[in-house]
Amino acid sequence: MLLTVDRINKSYSSFPNPPVQVLHDVSFSLAPGQALGLVGESGSGKSTIAKCLMALAAPESGSILYDGMDVSKARGAELLRFRREVQMVFQDPYGSLNPRMSVEELIGEGLLVHKLEPTAARRRERVAEIMRTVGLNPDDMVRFPRSFSGGQRQRIAIARALVIGPRILVCDEPVAALDVSVQAQVINLLRDMQRKLGLAIVFIAHDLAVVRHLCDSIVVLHKGRVVEAGPRADIFERPREAYTQALLAAVPVPDPEIGRARRERRHVLT
């Protein structure tokens, strides 16, 4: 396994309220090249998991092992290697890019920080190359984030994460803030990248339909606990837990026949 999350617990305290436990013994693992979906409603703890996965927060107990290293204890050179190999795309395409840096600086920052390309000219070439890969025009690298639409910003964020060649990409609700027609572009891009680069993806989302489309295996979270986990077909076609079933039943389907029928059935039941 590339990444193993083993029984992590985490609580937040906000004085004067008593501490609230947001994660209870959460475990799952990720194989190389696998696309794993973490789904849950608000309060399920999925964003906290993302923070712990990215070593931005440490669990109180349990461990997160990446390629043999304990993520929450990594320091110095070891942490830097982790940062290079595990990258992240955030939800908000408007807040996740430093507004005062040009696209070239933004995408090239990882190359600079990890000293992957010593010269500015080589860095620029690599930036242009990755921009083409994610469907951006390299001529736009002199521009600043404010002149891009939400979907384009998400492409910049993906390019910024991928340019240093990570093995895992953690995506925290990367399409939730995008319009439907643009959302599909970004989903397709992530899928292409995953296949082309053999990338492992942890895809955190509340939208089960998006997760079904993108992920091979799924972890369902509810109030900080893993409710059910398994391959895509099991979760979507044969959910075992009542919570998963209820969640799936509530997702609207863009087909009036099915939507109506489901609603009518429910009315008969109640």
């Binding site: 990215m54 931005l56 992240m88 955030f90 996740s96 890019l97 840096m101």
Partner: peptide
């Protein structure tokens, strides 16, 4: 608290660069 600062941390930028550049 901004996302882009978390983004820079995740990328592995040094404390000095985080403060002066971001």
């Amino acid at each position: 608290e901004s996302q882009f600062v978390a983004g820079a941390q995740v990328l592995g930028v040094s404390r000095w660069r985080l403060m002066t550049k971001h």
